[in-house]
Design a protein around this nucleic acid. Structure first.
Length: 796
RNA sequence: GCCGAAGUGGCGGAAUUGGCAGACGCGCCGGACUCAAAAUCCGGUGAGGGAAACCUCGUGUGGGUUCAAGUCCCACCUUCGGCACCA
């Protein structure tokens, strides 16, 4: 038999799949019967900011394995691909290369597409699109209009994250550790007008509907942390001298009797009024100005608490205690109400402040967790006390239970060029006016200088900006900011369902068939960004009646990072292998196999050349062994010997690992075992069955070599061939190795017939010379029998 | 501090419902083929003791439950990820 030649084989089948459009799937015809079993398999779409790296090979191979597996187990599989080509990542790549973003992006897309085809991924290429194409962003704009009309989108002045390097606003979700997620520059606080989506209105839905998805706990936990829901109470404190009530939020209403002072944040709107009436107004104003200008991060880093007394007192509604009102920067305006009741006995920060400024500390919970010194609530367990106190506040009109969130509204407009234009017009008379649907898309104009400089580059396109107000017809001005890339990617999976629709973003009947996505794969770095935005979008679209589901991704698989030489591979690092080089040296099949064989795909993994050398060696071995079996004459009766049974067990294991356990590495191991067995028993009557099965089971991982060997075995179109099914009758051997333990320690292993009754198993165990030696005549106190596994003899 | 995940040979990892720890692969050692090497094939490979049969120990640490624990319970330690002056 000839040598295994990956390049020739892979070229042959890739050409065949392309010519026969093997992986295109039609949409259901209206009214026609539909395949009951559909499977929408998707991986996060790539930014065309360069070419594919080894991490991409992992993600898309994971999706590919599933797509093949589901197709062959009877599902109609939708497995599309596109490019997240608008927005910062793509634009920054273009700026680096010094050419127009469109040119760079389109060049990268061509490169990536070629790489994907060279990997042999089973993609429905007829549905491909890029988010920067007007045919796509027209509908991004259309969806925005729906959001805007329904009050989900609004524009307001806010303190936002400003990246001085990228010269644009960033969403909270795009700031990691105080730095820009994309470029790493330290983020500044700026107050300016921004577009927002009211995602906070969906905080509870985003939490509650997690129960309807099968996601890794770690990802759900990240989203929970991000949303940061805290239950507690809002309580009104009265300042008589000023005739005002100040609300505070607390998660610990049970400690209300322990409040000994009161603090408002320096940015709190009431600070001006306090200063105005206070004898030390200048000091207050000075403190508030200085403290308020500092970012939260910096304030938190301060070791000593600072603050200034206002001269006023707030009244504790439960006991009329007069609490001195302080202004201090350890209280943040952006959380709760920007004012707190301070309970130094039971809050570390309040305690530090009390100690620093010599304020009283009053304990109201004892060692047993019961309330003390709390009037009629004393001696209640503190959880009950909390409820009782909130109830009391309610009946006296001084408070109610309340919930606070860490989540902020999603700021998504960018002062940059390369993004989806926002279809609104500013009119002096009519305000913000949406562009009529039939005038979409608002095309992104060409501008001379698209480089970021703090003001939106679109403002230069004066002819484009000046437009009649759609409402009154007088002169208006277009919005010159653009949408963030995460808006584009919040609905792209719907467009794949119906990519050529020019009357709507998609046909509801078609999305109702394909959606939700059955298996979504991508990096967990998107846990609190794309994955939360897409969930939010889906819920709004559902509430607007535009789609029939509330969660976009039924199951999410968060793949680990691939490292080479210890570094995360996002760009080409020195010495790291690229997919192109790997494919050239080892072929696509060995490369694909290597990334899934290293270890569990949901954990980070270190890729080394020795792994792909190992998988290449396996493929050569498979090629030789299966080739030899294929060349041998066919014949012999149906076999039920050891090799046949091993083959059935391999089917069962690979199927269960892939279909139920979503484990990608162990199916490869189990097929390797089968090939090892087959190599030793090529004359076995079941050899051909074993060879065919090995090829069939490895097909999702290494589709080219599998197809070629399948053809040599006299068959065709393995990718459409039903997945093998194990015969339950042949899953076990007719004998098994009985483990004999004495006092729980293995003392012998004996081969026995599978159908031996329990008493007989025990008898055989006792006959073993090794066991006899151990027992040494002692009396057996207890006998444990695990059928088909072991016998344990317990002696005194 | 809070939330989450994870600690197993020289290395990546396997062990699905509590039932033989270390599958599969890498590396290493020995052998075959070869003038030689590469490739390939065959065998070995947790640690300690022993000539061997075999024995003892062994899944981060310390306890516990059980005939039996990598797996379950309690208390810790370490690493990684998220959140964090969030009241």
């Amino acid at each position: 038999m000839d040598k295994y030649d990956a390049q020739t084989i892979e070229a042959k089948w890739q050409r065949f799949w392309e010519e026969t459009r093997a992986f295109e799937v039609p949409n259901p015809e209206p009214g026609a019967p539909r395949n009951e079993q559909k499977s929408y398999v998707l991986e996060m779409l790539p930014y065309p900011s360069g070419s594919l790296h080894i991490g991409h090979v992992l993600v898309y191979t994971l999706g590919d394995v599933l797509a093949h597996f589901y197709r062959r187990t009877g599902s109609e599989v939708l497995r599309p691909m596109g490019y997240d080509s608008f927005g910062l990542p793509a634009e920054n790549a273009a700026l680096k290369e010094g050419e127009h973003p469109r040119k760079i992006v389109e060049r990268n897309i061509e490169r990536i597409r070629a790489q994907m085809k060279r990997m042999g991924w089973a993609i429905d290429w007829s549905r491909e699109f890029s988010t920067h194409e007007p045919e796509y962003y027209r509908w991004t704009q259309w969806l925005f209009l729906k959001f805007f009309e329904a009050g989900h989108a609004y524009r307001t002045a806010a303190v936002v994250n400003w990246c001085p390097n990228d010269q644009t606003v960033l969403a909270n979700e795009q700031v990691k550790d105080g730095h820009c997620e994309r470029c790493g520059a330290e983020v500044e606080a700026r107050k300016l007008d921004e577009w927002f989506f009211r995602i906070t209105a969906y905080a509870d839905e985003l939490l509650d509907e997690m129960k309807d998805v099968q996601w890794p706990e770690r990802v759900l936990a990240m989203q929970r942390n991000w949303i940061g829901r805290s239950e507690g109470a809002e309580i009104l404190f009265r300042v008589d001298e000023l005739d005002i009530d100040i609300p505070v939020f607390t998660t610990r209403p049970d400690t209300l009797f322990g409040a000994t002072f009161f603090v408002v944040a320096p940015e709190h709107p009431l600070v001006d009024r306090l200063a105005e009436k206070s004898p030390n107004g200048d000091e207050i104003r000075e403190y508030a100005r200085k403290a308020g200008a500092r970012p939260t991060k910096e304030r938190a880093a301060e070791t000593d608490k600072t603050g200034v007394f206002s001269g006023f007192f707030a009244t504790n509604p439960v006991n009329d205690a007069r609490l001195p009102v302080w202004i201090a920067d350890y209280v943040l305006m952006e959380y709760g109400t920007g004012a707190i009741m301070a309970v130094p006995a039971h809050d570390e920060r309040d305690r530090e402040f009390a100690e620093r400024f010599d304020l009283p500390i009053k304990a109201v919970i004892d060692d047993e967790g019961k309330l003390v010194d709390s009037a009629q609530f004393s001696s209640l367990p503190h959880e009950e006390g909390a409820k009782a106190i909130v109830e009391w506040l309610g009946t006296h009109g001084r408070g109610r239970s309340a919930v606070s969130y860490r989540l902020r509204d999603w700021g998504w407009s960018r002062q940059r060029y390369w993004g989806c234009p926002i279809p609104v017009v500013y009119c002096d008379d009519c305000g913000i006016v949406p562009v009529p649907e039939d005038e979409l898309p608002v095309l992104l104009p060409e501008v001379e200088d698209y480089k970021p400089k703090g003001v939106p580059p679109l403002a230069q396109a004066e002819d484009w900006v000046r437009v009649p107000c759609p409402s009154c017809g007088r002169e208006g001005r277009r919005e010159v900011e653009t949408m963030d890339t995460f808006v584009d990617s919040s609905w792209y999976f719907l467009r794949y369902c119906d990519p050529d629709n020019d009357r709507a973003p998609y046909d509801r009947e078609i999305t109702d068939y394909w959606m939700p996505i059955d298996h979504y794969t991508g990096g967990v770095d998107h846990s609190t960004v794309h994955l939360i935005y897409a969930r939010y979008f889906t819920k709004v679209l559902n509430d607007l009646g535009l789609i029939g589901h509330r969660e976009p991704f039924k199951r999410f698989f968060g793949n680990g990072f691939v490292t080479q030489g210890g570094a995360k591979i996002s760009k080409r690092v020195g010495g790291a292998a690229t997919p192109d080089e790997l494919v050239e040296s080892y072929g696509a099949d060995a490369t694909r196999l290597s990334l899934l064989f290293i270890g569990p795909a949901d954990q980070d993994m270190e890729w080394t050349p020795s792994v792909v050398e190992g998988t290449q060696r396996f493929l050569r071995r498979l090629w030789r062994v299966v080739g030899e079996v294929a060349d041998a004459p066919v014949g012999g009766p149906p076999a039920d010997g050891a090799l046949a049974r091993k083959t059935h067990r391999t089917i069962a294991r690979a199927t269960d690992d892939l279909g139920r356990r979503h484990q990608f590495n162990t199916p490869i191991s189990t097929v390797m075992e089968l090939v090892n067995e087959l190599a030793k028993a090529q004359d076995d009557p079941a050899a051909r069955f074993a060879a065919e099965t090995a090829v069939s089971l490895i097909q999702p991982y290494a589709p080219h070599v599998a197809e070629e060997l399948w053809e040599r075995l006299g068959h065709e179109r393995l990718w459409e061939h039903p997945w093998p099914v194990a015969d339950p009758a042949l899953l076990e051997e007719d004998t098994f190795e009985l483990v004999v333990q004495v006092n729980g320690k293995v003392r012998d292993r004996i081969q026995v017939p599978a159908d031996l009754p329990e008493e007989e198993l025990v008898a055989r165990a006792k006959e073993s010379p090794k066991v006899k030696a151990q027992l040494n005549g002692a009396e057996i106190r207890q006998t444990i029998v695990v059928p088909r596994k072991l016998v344990n003899l317990v002696v005194g």
